[in-house]
Amino acid sequence: MPKINWFKYSSPQAFYPLIGKMIPWFTVLAVAFTLPGLYFGFFVAPPDYQQGESYRIMFIHVPAAWMSMFIYVVMAGYAGMGLVLNSRLSSMMASALAPTGAMFTFLALWTGALWGKPMWGTWWVWDARLTSELILLFLYIGFLSLQAAIDEPRRAARASAVLALVGVVNIPIIYFSVKWWNTLHQGASITVTKAPTMAASMFTAMILLTFAFWMYTIAVALMRVRCEILERERNSEWVAQAVGRSR
């Protein structure tokens, strides 16, 4: 059996055409998960016995909040990999994930506010989980602005990688905040160890939409990486050929 060279695709030149093929697949998957997810969420799942219809915003809120934390961890992982292995593609992946992560963080906060007004009677409370999610948004913004402030791409990537790794401390705090501090935000209804404490159709909708957001993130991040590769390698022969051909 011929040995597969796994490191082949860590070169931007080899990775560029591969992502071109991957993006349509992940886009299709994102749409394929979103449509049934929304259908289950809006038409199949029963209204909640306490919260009525307005709980349905959770089908966006919970996956967005999950993704906001998950993307940060993945981003920090790529950033650390870029720092240790000095691979260009890893740091490109990290910077490509950051805007999507910031968007999901904002979405989680926004939908949470929209849900909080009818349920808690207020748009915002200074509760542990809300505050730490807000800090996460600040961390994303810090990452993005540090990267924007440094002109030299290599230094920008490495400096923001250190910042991303330092900020990882916040993720367990957000995740466990509802357990550690008994505040207004409710505890998790879905855990790995126990059966979900919600109707099966609600659970299905939430999982489908989580996968939808996940696939969307991959598709969008890969698109950004593609632009990034072209921009950083613009003086190389293969970019001239690749761009010249598609013109």
């Binding site: 800090i135 600040f138 961390l139 540090l146 402030a149 400096a159 910042l163 916040n170």
Partner: peptide, 21 residues
Amino acid sequence: LTLGVRGGGVLVSLLVLPLYI
């Protein structure tokens, strides 16, 4: 991190204050 970066003074607040919380 912000040593010699343009606009370093404002940037450092953006990086450090969230971690101070």
